[in-house]
Design a protein around this nucleic acid. Structure first.
Lengths: 201, 201
DNA sequence: GCGTGTACGGTACTGAGTACCATTTGGAAC
DNA sequence: GTTCCAAATGGTACTCAGTACCGTACACGC
């Protein structure tokens, strides 16, 4: 996937990427070992062999390390949006069909790294403050979804609801398919079936 | 509503309630005036004429002041749950009908104090960290909803989805009916109509 | 090699939240 | 009213997250 990163990777870029990865690995190890809240930034910095200041140059705050894979998901989403067929998106059912496909693109991306997802899931469910931040991410996806729908002709009220319903399916899947990215993907599909099955009945 | 609070209100209880209210009023005034993040707890404590320590005795953290009306909503929800008719709750449509009624009970409670709601809405939408916490509240409601459904015979997967869909309708309403509690109540109703309308079609 | 900009580490600061202290004060029993 | 007790309070001191600033080292382009 990311074997071709721009022109060439300079020494500086490589070092930067390496320290970033070292921070992430160190932090995740410590968080899983002893819990997010009791691990201090100082500790992470020491073990990763960097200064405290440097940590905050790479990540805005302590929580941000946990959400470091965010960019991959956003890339997957925007790619899926770009590939989306230009179909009519007037009513709720049509809007849901599209946003379903977009959500599944994100889940599929998550399933590409099941180990990381499992750890992430565990951390988030054990720490309310991380769960808060996790739902902020989800809100952001909803915003992007909503915008995409509106840009393709969906009436605002319908688009807002469709985006939120999609998030609802994801949240349900998150609760039901814990720790396992593939299970979450399947549960999200089931949730949509259940939701749309009610539509068909 | 709350004219009969237990046996009798002692002097101690009255003083406690008064300081609590003084803290809330002071904090909201300062937050609205200058923004949540730049107001310090020291400042709130000084203006409310209490010690910094006392502030944290009344509220676990600075954010908690913003969500001080939480208890009223929870009371309204549990009351509505208790009053709910014992109807069959097997399929998604039935579960949604019930959770719709419960959600509207909460919104109605919120509409009883429109001024506060408007300020609350404004604060939350202007500060991501408060929005994080706001959705934590919403998650909590979803949990209660889900439990209620399961306790009344709804299959777990259906209950989880129904609870999340209800939250979705609320979130859509929150976005569409900004600042105005009555408008949010109406939008939540509309969202359910749209959702169930797709069901009927 | 030689400037230049970027990354880095260190110090010092503010503010949130916690732990512990002594003091005050309301309530109750006599 | 006095006495005793528990609850409420205010203050001090601490840890840690996050920010601002400064001097230094190093990769890069020439």
């Amino acid at each position: 996937m990311s074997t071709n990163n721009g022109p060439v990777e300079s020494l500086r870029d490589r070092k930067r990427r390496q320290t970033r990865e070292r921070i992430i690995e160190t932090a995740f190890a410590l968080f899983m070992e002893r819990g997010f809240d009791v691990v201090t930034v100082d500790e992470i910095a020491q073990r990763a062999e960097i200064g405290r200041t440097t940590f905050f140059r790479y990540f805005g705050d302590k929580q941000e390390v946990v959400f470091s894979t965010e960019d991959d998901f956003l890339r997957a989403l925007t790619a899926a949006m770009h590939d989306a067929p230009a179909e009519p998106l007037q009513d709720l059912a049509q809007a849901l069909a599209t946003s379903r496909r977009l959500l599944l693109a994100i889940c599929t991306e998550a399933a590409r790294n099941p180990g990381h997802y499992a750890v992430y899931h565990r951390l988030v469910e054990q720490h309310p403050e991380l769960e808060d931040r996790h739902t902020r991410k989800t809100r952001h996806y909803a915003d992007l979804l909503e915008k995409h729908l509106i840009d393709h002709g969906t009436p605002p009220a319908t688009a807002v609801l469709a985006a939120q319903l999609t998030v609802a399916c994801y949240q349900a899947a998150w609760r039901l398919g814990s720790h396992d990215a593939t299970a979450v993907l399947r549960e999200a599909n089931d949730a949509f079936d259940l939701l749309l099955g009610a539509t068909a009945a």
